[in-house]
Amino acid sequence: MIVTNTETIVGHEITEIRGLVQGNTVRAKNIGRDIMAGLKNVVGGELKGYTELLTESRRQAVERMMAQAEELGANAVVNVRFTTSAVTQGAAELYSYGTAVVVEPSRVG
């Protein structure tokens, strides 16, 4: 499946639009990561645990979005966007949405 965050795909033609597809996930980080982050907040630097959490959440949200697109019989998702929100103290939501389309390789460049 082709996934892009542009409206068009170079070298491809959009032949059919299948509609909006979306995927979201709310993930909590464990207490160990919270404690480590608290310590890191003294000396600064990257919070690898939280970066990983975001990576995992994003992957899951995109997977759900792609599963929905597949159900609609699309072979590409264009114009993908992300938003996040903090639901409660320890959990963050990551929401990804895009337009499911059917594309064909265009004949002329």
């Binding site: 982050a37 907040n41 000396v43 600064g44 630097g45 990257e46 919070l47 970066t51």
Partner: peptide, 8 residues
Amino acid sequence: ETVIASDY
């Protein structure tokens, strides 16, 4: 994605 912590 990147998460950077503040320091003291």
